[in-house]
Design a binder for these strands. Structure first.
Length: 562
RNA sequence: UGGCCCAUGGUGUAAUUGGCAACACUACUGAUUUUGGUUCAGUCAUUCUAGGUUCGAGUCCUAGUGGGCCAACCA
């Protein structure tokens, strides 16, 4: 599919090196490890494309593993949404795994650690433990419970497991080094007591393993060769390796953790906490609101999986801080939609246009190309009549040379139809234009082959026939934030930058063929942008979401004039 | 005041591992166009700074500067 000449990212370099120094190609295995406590967003998409892309590149299996070790935050709803999103992106996982599947194994290994004097039960509160932890510049101090006997630790741990203690009474800690320069190595907690029902294991367990203890061991159980995560886990690598040292046997593959920088997108936030806040405080209408940078939001907005995958591919992966401009995502949406979206005509802000020399009551069905980029897309017919709607911004009583659209005394082509000339306007008492009266050249019909039809006129407008068009709701979305990096201001919170005009709901006029449109269908409204039928649509009441505008050179010219 | 990571056009990523700084986006020119879309051509860099090694440094070394991460019974 893609050219083989693409340069390698640093992760691929690592893998190539490993392949040269002993790894068998059949040993390669990856995983995507979401915590089911929220919806996936574009940042995750990068990680998904990285891991599954590696799987495709090396023909290696990729597991979908839910990191579900904290029953207080995780829910089945999120598991379902995550699976739907990964599938929608077009990837197939090898095994569907859950860290909770390994609770028994993890427990048994923990017992081994205790027996080997590598773990102990601490019976202090979290505050005392925090104090003993020290700081990045000062060493910590040992817990008074650090030297409990193996048998006492075993007994206590067993009782923790059996639910004989209240939450917070004890924890199991790895016995490493309270003076270690890496604070994560200062006797990290392996298990805490939680009397909570888990979405998969129910009430089987009263103790739940912590991330560090779980993740590497899960990778090991699944024989993941390369465990890729974001940069903030870099300091965890030492602990990841320490835990692995306790259980790995020589004849099995030892996973390695490598870290990359998470992708940040401009004009949005990509943090589950902040996204959850947007949802909970009603700034948007749910996780799949088309303004959300979630996969489900992008999908509902009309973005295609191809666009997201191409986006992820071109922004690449590296280790430095970054903010990718949304314009890159917009570009990929347009690039793909341009190839696949059928062209139709819809007038979003209508003004009536009357062709005074066109016979009253006459109607013509004109041929219109469905997609100039795709000859296979064929054509359709659209009705033309004496009274039409055109876009209000496409007409001015007077305008300078740069305005290619309709002005009094000026000519313009109606897309797929005739050349018309504006003659006069009818205004209401407020001076607002009610109707534009014009004449048409009946020899200029598009595709008729006449000399008149081949005349060059500067502007071409989209239109709908007033008698044949129908109205539909259009949700015009704009970016959710007015600032490129809303959550990186010292003095202001990200909510201060919410765009008050991120959603505008209007009623627009559609060409009649659109009545058949189904939720999820994507179109290009010619000269306006790409739109997608929203699932809120009902048979008699279609709703369209604006996915992205077309590039708008005119808007730039206009802006410069001001 | 400790440790670790990072630094290449406005943005993101490359550079055959020490050999003419490339690709994409954005912006701007121009051409084409029955979508001011698409397409095509072009323009936009003292590789953070200062030293050093070398015939040769974006790449290696040293120091500095700037940014990020690290003290949850979160992941």
């Amino acid at each position: 599919m893609k050219e083989a000449s693409r340069s390698l990212n640093f992760i691929e370099h690592i893998i190539e090196d490993d392949l040269k120094t002993g790894y068998g190609k059949d040993q390669l295995r990856f995983r995507f490890p979401p915590e089911p406590n929220g919806y996936l967003h574009v940042g995750h998409a990068s990680s998904i494309c990285l891991n599954f892309g590696l799987g495709l590149r090396y023909n290696a299996p990729v597991n979908l593993r839910f990191d579900d070790t904290n029953p207080t935050k995780e829910e089945q709803e999120y598991v379902d949404a995550i699976k739907r999103d990964v599938s929608w992106l077009g990837f197939e996982w090898d095994q569907e795994c859950y860290a909770s599947d390994y609770f028994q194994q993890l427990h048994d290994w923990a017992v081994t650690l205790i027996e080997n004097g590598k773990a102990y039960v601490d019976s202090q509160g979290s505050e005392a433990m925090a104090q003993q932890k020290g700081t990045p510049t000062e060493p910590g101090t040992n817990s008074p419970f650090r030297d409990r006997s193996v048998s006492e630790n075993l007994e206590l741990f067993e009782k923790m497991k059996n639910g004989e203690f209240p939450e917070g009474a004890h924890v199991l800690r790895a016995k490493i080094d309270m003076a270690h320069p890496n604070m994560l190595m200062r006797d990290p907690v392996m298990y805490r007591i939680l009397h909570k029902a888990h979405h998969r294991t129910g009430t089987d367990w009263c103790i739940y393993p912590m991330y560090d203890w779980t993740h590497g061991e899960s990778d090991y159980i699944e024989q993941i060769s390369h465990s890729l995560c974001t940069l903030e886990f870099l300091p965890h690598r030492e602990l990841y390796d320490w835990f692995l040292d306790q259980v790995v046997s020589a004849d099995t593959l030892r996973p390695k953790q490598r870290e990359f920088a998470r992708r940040n997108l401009s004009h949005t936030v990509v943090s589950k906490r902040k996204l959850l806040q947007l949802v909970n405080e009603g700034h948007v209408n749910g996780w799949d609101d088309p303004r959300m940078p979630t996969i489900s939001g992008l999908r509902r907005r009309g973005c295609t999986p191809e666009a997201i995958r191409n986006f992820a591919d071109t922004i690449g992966i590296a280790k430095r801080e970054n903010v990718v401009d949304v314009s890159v995502l917009d570009f990929h949406m347009r690039e793909h939609l341009n190839k696949v979206a059928p062209r139709v005509m819809a007038v979003l802000d209508p003004v009536k246009l009357v062709i005074t020399n066109y016979p009253e009551g006459k109607e013509e069905w004109l041929e219109a190309e469905n997609n100039p980029e795709d000859p296979e897309a064929g054509s359709r017919t659209i009705p033309f009549s004496r009274e039409l709607y055109i876009e209000r911004e496409d007409f001015r009583e007077e305008a300078n040379r740069k305005f290619f659209r309709l002005k009094l005394g000026g000519e313009v082509r109606l897309k797929n139809a005739y050349i018309i000339k504006a003659e006069s306007v009818v205004k209401d008492e407020k001076g607002e234009i009610q109707e534009i009266h014009c004449t048409y050249d009946d020899l200029s019909r598009s595709g008729s082959g006449t000399e008149e039809s081949q005349r060059k006129v500067k502007g071409t407008l989209h239109w709908v026939s007033a008698d044949h068009a129908f109205q539909a709701e259009v949700r015009v979305y704009d970016r959710l934030f007015t600032d490129a990096t809303p959550d990186q201001h010292k003095d202001k919170g990200f909510l201060d930058f919410i765009n008050p005009d991120s959603l505008q709901v209007i009623s627009a006029w559609m060409e009649p063929g659109l009545k058949e449109a189904q939720p999820g269908d994507r179109f290009q409204f010619q000269r306006m942008g790409y739109f997608c039928v929203d699932p809120d649509s009902t048979p008699g009441n279609l709703v369209f979401n604006r996915t992205v505008t077309l590039r708008d050179t005119w808007a730039k010219i206009e802006q410069k004039e001001e």
